[in-house]
Write a protein that binds this DNA or RNA. Structure first.
Lengths: 342, 342
DNA sequence: ACTTGGAGTCCGGGGGACCAA
DNA sequence: CTTGGTCCCCCGGACTCCAAG
């Protein structure tokens, strides 16, 4: 029954099947499929025709097996982090022109970083791009001993050998947020902290430094929290019991800020009239018109591009010591900040 | 230099390397690595020790190549859809106990479904789980001719052969939303429509049917929109120019509803006091305390579990014709709905 | 008679050597 | 000598068969 995609019961067609149908050798079929030279136009067409008929599709794994290179960049990301999914979008865009593919491995409830990385390694990725990794530095160093590793959005001591770092200047971002609030007239500015999350230490430090520089040392106040909406909400609840309220809050990130906004809303605390709120990341979340969060913007496409570039450079033989790209953030003023109402 | 993880410059260790170091054959190493029988405890330990020392890690691809089975389920999902990322989390959880792995392929800006699926096929996935696929039915049918395909959250005519379907009863969900609103006293209920998005037709139909059954035929009003926040915002802007406003809005999904909420907020239209809003999905988004959206809840863990089950059943030789699981949704009442203020 | 371990083959495809016009 | 095409071995690991202990 010609024309029927002859799928012999679950077995997918191979080079040999195409070769048999086209009446040529498998090597020739290989040449045609790779678009390499060494086949006449007529034969080429005949082979492609045969391949179409039986629904042939090259097996990426077998191909990689032979060709040492996999041209695969393994990406670990947090499924529920808008900042990460935005980055992944940028990584896809950056990897393609460089001739690399992306293999995704999610960190989610019940699937830790360890598992995510293992699956990437087993899949023979040539390099790892880790988004906001929380693993101990020692573990990352160990990985970097095996293959090029790029840490995105987490600062690491340069002493971690072989580890490439691409990150935003978190301290500078925190400074911008504080400067903005101070310029608006705020003095009583609280930082809702990310705890041990990547970047949290720098943002905390930047907040401290900026407050000090503005002569607001005695107003420094840091509430321990974390990187989720719930963390932000918890901190905000603690805060809303205070009298008087602080006039401004700088949250660890957008998710956290979202939780803060919510609690304030319910507590009848108006934003920005009663309290101003600043987030961090400028992820999709912040841009939701409904939230419209003033936030410290990370240049996501740029971070993604640099991460890919660093990975590729290492893969293509760059022997220079591992380096670091630090991107300057840019404050995005939206509607959650305003002068204090005194 | 014993103890040093001898990584011979970029080349990862293979079975042979371990064998050489342990002084045994590769076959024996294979046995040990697979935890198969055929090796003494002493040898086993010796081999494992050697493997650890040189940092050996089995090559998943080579393994699959030989074993015909890849035990890999390919998942296509939308990076920016909270509903999808929630589902992916469920898929990971469901696949593991069944002994399968998940390969992720994202649909994003600049990366369409075609591309996403191609990469999954090239990776030798044994079955495809497509989240809210927008591809033409004919294309899906073609895929289903090659391997088991499960469509999640999109209804397809049973005439599409070989295609498994797992979905929520969208029409029933829309009905629940309308019933809820009518019970609160609403009559002027607008539907902001998902256009050609998966599920949109059924939700639209469910809305129509329910409105008719409540004798509200002349209040039926459907605004064309789509599945993003921006689509919802556009529709809401059109709506807020109306006098009098409708008293309730049923949005296509949570993202769309979020856009609606935003525009209303800015236009000074209070939710739920002036207008009630209902979403669909009960994704992470709806649960954000800040949004706290009344929504038609899809049972995400269940959908994920069923999708995996159907894929696995087909792979393990179930020859029964392709089927469909239709899950009943359950309305989750939060704070965006209330009686109309007359 | 078992147990333990080795040699050889296969999976799907890549690519260099080599042969035929 | 090119161009077109074939042969053969290799990649990394798994499994069957066999032989040695």
């Amino acid at each position: 029954m010609p024309g029927t995609p002859a799928v012999p019961a679950g077995k997918r067609p191979t080079l040999a099947d195409v070769a048999a149908r086209a009446g040529v050798s498998t090597a020739l079929v290989s040449i045609v499929m790779r678009d390499a030279k060494g086949a006449s136009a007529a034969t080429r067409e005949r082979v492609l025709q045969a391949a179409r008929e039986i629904g042939y599709r090259p097996d990426a794994r077998a191909r990689l097996l032979r060709s040492q290179r996999s041209r695969l960049l393994g990406v670990q990301f947090g499924l529920q982090h808008p900042f990460h999914t935005d980055l992944v979008e940028g990584l896809y865009a950056a990897a393609e022109p460089a001739g690399y593919q992306i293999a995704l491995s999610a960190v989610a409830a019940g699937r830790g970083e360890q598992r995510a990385v293992e699956s990437l390694l087993a899949d023979r990725c040539e390099a790892l791009i880790l988004l906001g990794p929380q693993a101990p530095a020692a573990r990352l160093a160990e990985l970097a001993g095996q293959l090029p590793v790029v840490s995105v959005a987490r600062r690491l001591r340069p002493s971690v050998p072989g580890l490439e770092v691409v990150r935003t200047a978190d301290d500078e971002g925190a400074r911008q947020a504080v400067d903005h609030l101070v310029a608006l007239g705020h003095r009583d500015i609280v930082h809702i902290d990310g705890g041990r999350a990547p970047g949290a230490a720098d943002r905390r430090r930047g907040y401290r430094t900026a407050m000090n520089r503005h002569g607001l040392a005695e107003h420094i106040r840091i509430l321990p929290a974390g990187l989720t909406e719930e963390d932000g909400a918890d901190a905000a609840r603690a805060l809303s019991a205070d009298r008087p309220h602080p006039t401004a809050v700088m949250a660890f990130n957008d998710r956290c800020a979202t939780g803060v906004l919510d609690v304030f809303l319910r507590a009848g605390i108006a934003v920005p009239d009663d309290i101003s709120v600043v987030g961090f990341d400028d992820s999709h979340l912040a841009r939701l018109a409904h939230i419209d969060l003033t936030t410290v913007g990370q240049d996501i496409p740029r971070l993604a591009h640099l991460a890919v570039s660093r990975a590729v450079a290492r893969l293509e033989g760059d022997k220079s010591p591992a380096g670091e790209d630090v991107i300057t953030p840019r404050l995005v003023v939206r509607s959650t900040t305003a002068p204090p109402s005194l």
